[in-house]
């Protein structure tokens, strides 16, 4: 039952609750860094990493520090500072100890601080914690959700990089060139994600 619900959380985070295509979080990197496949993948891996890491820190802090002290109002300030601090820390650690990884991922790290998808993941998951129901999210669910959200970001970025590759060679009206046609393409990609609704429906643990 637990494994089933974790799988459902994971799939839902990738497909039906895709942070880019249905929640509109992280649009800037989605439009800006998706021109080439390798940069799209690099960015997404860095985002996934930071998402899981931030959730692993913010979730316990919120549940065991802020809530018992009645200081939920500090959530926004604290979370954004934790994310910013973590990103810095990861950058320093990577540069010092794993230079190979730093060279491929490190450059994406500074811009993740202000990526709303990361802050969104850490905050949205807390809304699903409701101890009065049996369907509450635990720490494990939160981590899986963060990982799924990152993979969902990756899927969207990779798909979109493919679509944009085609756009480069397409003959499009002059006024649509650049951003407008990119957005229209994004509309079509997000339309295709609407089709996943029925798929995850079978797996969502409604009891």
């Amino acid at each position: 039952m637990l494994i089933k619900s974790l799988v459902a959380v994971f799939l839902a985070a990738i497909l039906t609750e895709n942070y880019v295509l249905s929640k509109f979080l992280g649009i800037c990197p989605f439009l800006g860094v998706s021109k080439k496949l390798n940069t799209a993948v690099g960015m997404s891996v860095a985002v996934t990493f930071v998402m899981v890491l931030s959730t692993a820190v913010t979730f316990p802090i919120y549940t065991y520090v802020l809530v018992p002290m009645g200081m939920e109002y500090l959530q926004t300030v604290l979370f954004i500072l934790i994310i910013a601090g973590l990103v810095q820390l990861v950058e320093i650690v990577l540069r010092k100890y794993i230079p190979a990884l730093y060279n491929s991922l490190g450059i994406y790290l500074p811009l993740i601080t202000t990526n709303c998808a990361v802050l969104g993941v850490t905050m949205l998951v807390l809304q699903k914690v409701d101890s009065t129901t049996a369907y509450t999210y635990t720490f494990g669910h939160a981590l899986v959700n963060a990982f799924g959200a990152g993979i969902g970001f990756l899927v969207a970025m990779v798909m979109f990089a493919g679509v944009r590759g085609r756009l480069e060679s397409a003959d499009i009206p002059k006024s649509l060139k650049g951003l407008p046609i990119t957005l229209v393409a994004a509309a079509l990609v997000s339309l295709s994600f609407l089709g996943f609704a029925g798929f995850v429906d079978k797996l969502i643990p409604l009891g």
Binding site: G32, T39, I107, L111, L179
Partner: peptide, 24 residues
């Protein structure tokens, strides 16, 4: 005309197109 959303972004210097081109 702006072609990417990055041109006016405060983080543009250490990110996006420049970074992309560099990594590529």
């Amino acid at each position: 005309v702006k072609t990417t959303p990055c041109d006016g972004c405060p983080m543009a210097d250490n990110c996006a197109e420049k970074t992309c081109e560099k990594t590529a």
